Amino acid sequence: MTLYTNMPLELVLEGFNDEMENMQEIWSNGVKMQVMPVAPGMGKIVRLLECQLDDYLNPKFMPGNIIHYQ
Rank of each mutant, 00 (worst) to 15 (best):
M1I: 09
T2Y: 10
L3G: 01
L3E: 06
Y4E: 12
Y4K: 07
Y4C: 05
Y4G: 03
Y4H: 14
T5I: 03
T5Y: 01
N6G: 06
N6R: 07
M7P: 03
E10T: 12
E10Y: 06
E10S: 12
L11W: 04
L13K: 07
L13V: 09
G15H: 14
G15L: 03
F16T: 11
F16R: 13
N17F: 13
N17Q: 02
D18H: 11
D18Q: 14
E19V: 05
E19S: 10
E19K: 13
M20H: 13
E21P: 07
E21F: 02
E21M: 08
N22C: 01
N22Q: 07
N22K: 13
M23T: 14
Q24Y: 04
Q24H: 02
W27R: 01
W27M: 15
S28G: 00
S28H: 12
G30Q: 07
V31Y: 12
V31E: 11
V31H: 11
V31G: 01
K32Q: 11
M33S: 07
Q34S: 13
Q34F: 00
Q34P: 00
V35A: 09
M36F: 11
M36V: 11
M36H: 12
M36R: 15
V38C: 09
A39H: 05
A39I: 06
P40Y: 04
P40D: 03
P40C: 05
G41A: 04
G41R: 06
M42G: 00
M42A: 03
M42T: 07
G43W: 05
G43T: 08
I45R: 03
I45Q: 06
V46H: 15
V46I: 13
R47P: 00
R47M: 06
R47V: 00
L48R: 08
L48M: 13
L48T: 05
L49G: 02
L49E: 03
E50R: 15
E50L: 13
E50Y: 12
C51Q: 05
C51G: 04
Q52T: 14
Q52A: 09
Q52H: 09
L53P: 01
L53H: 12
D54R: 12
D55R: 10
D55T: 12
D55Q: 12
Y56M: 13
L57G: 06
L57Q: 15
N58K: 11
P59A: 05
P59I: 10
K60N: 04
F61N: 09
M62I: 05
P63R: 01
P63A: 02
G64W: 02
N65C: 01
N65M: 03
I67W: 01
I67F: 04
H68E: 14
H68Y: 11
H68S: 15
Y69S: 05
Y69T: 08
Q70W: 01
